[in-house]
């Protein structure tokens, strides 16, 4: 039943600034920020239990076993824009979320062992943009906390969601279910991916 694509948070932040400038000051739209010439490595979100990024890139055989094992189809093949990481498994926050299966079938399926049960399951950290979060703006909403699969990772404090950074695995379920007009949750990647 879905139709329209979401407006990404980043586009929105940029858009809002332009709009604010226009609306409040009546001045012309400022020119867009200059494009960066040099290529900057894109942050990549790996499936849970991934070994350090350098080792992951070196040892992942691109066999797609984890992709096939995922019961919700959250793991995809990194596209070309990820350059040297293209072809490796990733979870694209814009379209999917890891549901934190208790039996971690993706890890069980990983033969080269770049996804490991003895590694932290952390894939990133959720971050609530309070300016877009309905609960923070006076509308009753508790969807993200109810659907968070990690106990204790997303608390509701005075009716408003608060992420517990240490517990949050960055699975992305909260961002997927956020019903705010402009999605209020971003999943921040781990600082070491790319290394």
């Amino acid at each position: 039943m879905s139709n329209d694509a979401d407006i990404s948070r980043r586009d929105f932040v940029r858009g809002r600034l332009l709009r604010t400038v226009r609306a409040m000051a009546g001045v012309p739209t400022p020119p867009p920020a200059p494009q960066r010439a040099a290529w900057v490595p894109l942050p990549i979100r790996r499936p849970p239990g991934a070994v350090p990024e350098a080792r992951f890139l070196a040892e992942c055989t691109r066999c797609n076993a984890c992709i096939q094992a995922c019961p919700v189809g959250a793991i995809t093949v990194a596209p070309m824009r990820f350059r040297h990481a293209a072809g490796t498994p990733m979870i694209d926050q814009a379209t999917a979320a890891c549901v934190m299966c208790p039996d971690t079938p993706c890890i069980s399926a990983c033969e080269p062992g770049v996804l490991r049960k003895d590694r932290p399951l952390k894939m990133g950290t959720a971050w609530v943009d309070r300016s877009n979060c309905l609960a923070h703006r006076g509308t009753l909403c508790t969807t993200c906390s109810e659907r968070c699969p990690v106990p204790g990772a997303l608390r509701v404090d005075g009716g408003k969601p608060a992420i517990q950074d240490a517990t949050c695995t960055g699975c992305g379920v909260c961002a997927q279910v956020c019903p705010a007009p402009i999605n209020a949750i971003a999943i921040l990647p781990l600082p070491d991916r790319p290394a």
Binding site: T20, S131, P189
Partner: peptide, 19 residues
């Protein structure tokens, strides 16, 4: 008692510093 948000502005490119 409460802290409510009326306006937030972040400059681009820095949001991933937090992690």
């Amino acid at each position: 008692r409460f802290v409510d948000v009326a306006y937030v502005h972040f400059d681009q490119g820095e949001e991933h510093d937090h992690g």
